[in-house]
Amino acid sequence: MALEARTLTLHGQEIRLREYLPSTRDTTGEPLVLLHGISGSGQTWIPLLEHFERTGFGRHVLVPDLPGHGDSGSPRADYGLGAMASVVRDILALTGNHHATIAGHSLGGGIAMQFAYQFPEMCARLVLVGSAGLGPQVTAVLRATALPGAKATLAAAVNPVTVAIARGIAAAGRGLGGKLAPETRELTRHLSSLSDAGRRRAFLFIARSLIDLRGQRASAVDKLYLAEQVPTLMIWGAHDPLIPVEHGRKTAELLPGSRLTVFENAKHFPHVADPARFGAELERFLDETEPARLTLEEVVEILVRASEAANEVENRAKAVKKVPEKLSPGPHLRRA
């Protein structure tokens, strides 16, 4: 596979970047950026990249390990959505790209939407895969990170010793003919990454900044109107236990021009469960849509129109309240 890996130095910190380079000499269209989810890494996209190589996918693909994840550095830093979106912008700049389709899984979907909000002129399309940030519901495991003592509990549950024990049990199971499903292996890989103290710190920072005991606090729903001109594809697993597919369905209603594809036999990792179908859906979407070319001036115009419309609705509501109610004749009123 034409897959290269290198390390970028970004603001003094190391960022691991995988790049898929088409086998054909000429690439087509703007590059595709693939963003992983919380506690994951760019490795989650390897099955899709292998599919691209088999089918001759003609686009340049950038697959970073986000800060605090994979082989990138884990500094004591800001891991919020805005900071992560800025990292994606800087990676594009360092690789000589100014316009890209941004695809994100889970947390990566939230970062993709934040990127489109912060840097609309750089966002050609959005692909949201089991995306965070589209509704409050989320698994109780992630809500529990808001509890006191979560840091110590996580360190006791996931550390080099417990991970080694789990791997030994898994190896014994394979020796007896057992086999984990692709999505289960991927989830296990995500969890195992938390045995590293730096990855664990980043995980807790991100989870607590976005989620409390009631669910996801961060939401892009009120800003979706800004993405109406950006072609958007959503892909969800019908049996996603972490972020329910209903979030995708509701978002599709709010974005009439968007596309939603539900994988009936997938959970939270549809790109791992069926990379061939995922790749086909993605390629079809790229082929059938024109990339957005928004300017900052156009975004400002959209914001102004939305603000004026909201003010008009508010003023009408106030005017209705000021109209005095007419008293109807009753027993307490006597005619002169």
Rank of each mutant, 00 (worst) to 15 (best):
L282D: 02
A317D: 11
F278S: 06
D274A: 07
E312T: 13
A292N: 12
D274E: 13
E264P: 00
V262T: 12
L282C: 06
G279V: 01
V272A: 05
F278M: 05
V300I: 09
P275F: 13
V320I: 15
V299M: 12
K318C: 03
N265W: 09
K318F: 04
A266K: 01
P275M: 08
E298V: 06
R293S: 06
L282M: 13
E301K: 09
L303E: 13
I302T: 11
E312Q: 09
V262M: 08
L296F: 04
N311D: 14
V300T: 07
E301T: 13
L294Q: 11
E308H: 14
A310T: 03
V262A: 06
A280C: 03
V272I: 15
V300F: 10
V313N: 02
N265Y: 10
A310C: 04
F278T: 14
L294K: 08
R305S: 03
F269D: 08
K318D: 13
A276W: 11
A273W: 05
V299D: 03
V272G: 04
E312F: 07
R277N: 03
L303D: 07
R316M: 10
V262R: 07
A317S: 14
R284G: 04
K318Q: 14
V304A: 08
A310M: 03
V300Q: 06
L303Y: 04
V320M: 07
R293A: 10
H268K: 05
A292I: 00
T295G: 12
A319W: 15
F269V: 03
T295D: 00
V262Q: 06
N311I: 00
N265I: 03
D274K: 04
E281R: 13
F278E: 05
N311E: 14
N311C: 02
K267P: 02
V320Q: 15
R293F: 03
E297H: 12
V313L: 07
A319S: 15
K267L: 03
A310N: 09
P291Y: 00
F263L: 08
A273M: 09
V313T: 13
A266R: 00
A266L: 02
E264I: 00
E314S: 15
H271K: 11
E301W: 05
E290R: 15
R277Q: 07
E281Q: 13
L282E: 04
N311R: 01
A309T: 14
L282Q: 05
A276K: 13
A266F: 01
E283Q: 12
R277D: 00
E281W: 07
E283S: 14
D287I: 12
E298Y: 04
V262K: 09
R293L: 07
V272S: 04
K267R: 11
L286R: 01
F278N: 05
